[in-house]
């Protein structure tokens, strides 16, 4: 079996400052990888590099494409990379406003990715949009409402529906539960866990919330100052942290 994503020595500098340094890992099909660390530790930079939003200064990001097998996405042509971005990849932003088109209805938001890959039958597009809204627990009668009229949690669920409608194999999530209150967070996590398992998705989740990775991630990478300081199975890292920073992180979680 080939890994879905192979990351080799990805480095990104902002001038003299280090964004992330020499990060390498393999992501296997169906696996969920969590990246945790404090603010400024380089986890979002790393995610942007992997998703092609930033170009790293060094390293390779090799994705196992459906058509041509493993290919370095950084050396791919821009049209091919953008095509990947709306078919096999999905990116869930922390703020749903960044990932949604706020001026058009929920149905059009979900349908946009379908139309972008060539769907030209209104009835079928709408059917799929309604189906996906149902899967993220948005009532079918809200399909023609604009995201503006939705609550924060609904917007985030709509963003997830919009991203998953084309059946991607790899989902990048940047703080998917940030900015939501805890009860909405819990429902969203429950939903995400169900979808990830059901669709057999691979995912990379960046978060500073250890509860999120405990629930969702199979494997965990801890970053500090741009470097990976510890990596391992989620439960192993969280229950028996080895690195001093990880120990601090785990002991900092507030208990109710």
């Amino acid at each position: 079996m080939t890994p879905l994503l192979q990351v080799k020595g990805v480095t990104k500098r902002y001038g003299a400052r280090l964004g992330c340094g020499d990060v390498s890992f393999d992501l296997w099909p169906g696996e969920v990888m969590g990246i945790v660390g404090e603010s400024g530790s380089g986890k979002s930079t790393l995610l942007s590099c992997l998703a092609g939003h930033l170009s790293p200064d060094a390293g390779e990001v090799i994705f196992d494409t459906r058509a041509e097998g493993p290919r370095d996405v950084l050396t791919m042509s821009e049209p091919a990379r953008r095509m990947l971005g709306r078919t096999d990849w999905a990116f869930v932003h922390q703020n749903p406003r960044d990932g949604l088109r706020m001026g058009v209805s929920a149905g059009a938001n979900v349908g946009e990715r379908l139309m972008a890959v060539g769907a030209r039958h209104y009835g079928q597009i709408r059917e799929q949009a309604v189906d996906w809204l149902g899967r993220v627990e948005i009532a079918a009668d809200r399909v023609d409402d604009r995201p503006r009229a939705f609550s924060g949690g609904m917007q985030q669920r709509l963003q997830i529906a919009r991203n998953l409608v084309t059946g991607p194999r790899l989902v990048f999530m940047d703080e998917p539960t940030g900015g939501l209150d805890v009860s909405v967070q819990a429902r969203l996590l429950d939903l995400l866990r169900g979808l990830v398992r059901e669709m057999g998705l691979s995912a990379i989740i960046v978060t500073h919330d250890l509860a999120v990775v405990r629930l969702l991630a199979d494997r965990l990478m801890v970053m500090k100052g741009g470097h990976v300081v510890e990596t391992g199975l989620t439960d192993q890292v969280l229950d028996d942290p080895q690195h001093g920073y990880t120990q601090l992180l785990v002991s900092s979680v507030l208990q109710v």
């Binding site: 058009v104 059009a108 946009e112 709408r126």
Partner: peptide, 15 residues
């Protein structure tokens, strides 16, 4: 990348 143009037509039909 012209999928977006159809989003406008989709909105027309939806509304």
């Amino acid at each position: 990348e012209y999928g977006l143009m159809h989003v406008k037509l989709y909105e027309d039909i939806a509304h």
